[in-house]
């Protein structure tokens, strides 16, 4: 995935679409940002300068689907194999029904891409009608996170199989990329050198967050602002 921060206006359509698509639960008060469940979080960056040199930018953060050798930080530590990386697709999935809720994966993730179900998820009765059958609602006491809309990939692969096509060649779009009104989010197969994402990842504007940790995130960002680049990792000068 490549997110163009020059185009991103921080509107949040990606995050809302994600919540709708993935049955992310919500509560009357969502202002405790350390307890909210969000697969796609918007961070606000600023250049630290005074008025009128001040500038702000929004940075949407899905799961980075870390590609570090052998293991992602989270999959390495899960004691019960509830979160695993599919080495074929590169997607880090999380199986809520296997999760024992030890939160070790959350602790290991430097991007805070994981949220814990501190409460029993509860929808207003009438809103249960809008829950998607493709993604099971999680239960209290387990961790959840962005799966790059893994179920959409499965859906696309199933369709390909039915049509007698190669299921490995399918393309699909996660909800966030689909909703983005500015087209700031590009999604595709990084391993395919001809894909848009592979091309954009080599753009001079491209960077990843916390490259120095060698987590090898599969989410790239694009920005032409140096002050944003500087906040992509610690001690960049």
């Amino acid at each position: 995935m490549v997110i163009d921060l020059d185009k991103c206006t921080g509107c949040g359509a990606c995050a809302v679409a994600c919540q709708q698509e993935n049955n992310v639960s919500f509560r009357p008060d969502e202002s405790d940002k350390l307890r909210t469940i969000a697969w796609m979080t918007l961070y606000r960056l600023d250049n630290g300068k005074d008025y009128p040199e001040h500038r702000e930018a929004m940075l949407p953060r899905p799961c980075m689907q870390c590609d570090s050798p052998h293991h992602s930080p989270c999959t390495f530590v899960c004691p019960v194999n509830a979160t695993v990386r599919d080495e074929h697709t590169g997607i880090v999935d999380h199986i809520a029904v296997r999760c024992i809720g030890c939160r070790y994966c959350m602790v290991a993730c430097p991007y805070h891409a994981r949220s814990f179900n501190w409460w029993d998820p509860k929808w207003p009765k009438t809103m249960e009608a809008m829950l998607s059958p493709e993604v099971s609602p999680r239960m209290r006491g387990v961790v959840e996170k962005c799966t790059f809309c893994h179920h959409r990939l499965n859906r696309a692969r199933d369709r390909a199989r039915i049509n007698g096509e190669d299921p490995d060649g399918v393309v699909y779009t996660p909800a966030c990329a689909e909703a983005c009104p500015t087209g700031a989010i590009t999604f595709g197969n990084l391993r395919d050198p001809h894909s848009d994402v592979a091309r954009l990842a080599k753009d001079p504007r491209a960077f990843r967050i916390l490259e120095k940790l060698h987590t090898e995130p599969k989410v790239y960002y694009l920005s032409s602002d140096q002050w944003i680049h500087k906040q992509s990792d610690n001690d960049l000068s």
Binding site: A13, T126, M127, A129, C180
Partner: peptide, 17 residues
């Protein structure tokens, strides 16, 4: 194909209590 957050959250109005 673009959408704003209000539109994306549209079902929460449709099914609002």
């Amino acid at each position: 194909g673009g959408l704003c957050p209000v539109g994306a959250a549209g079902l929460q109005y449709l099914y609002a209590p």
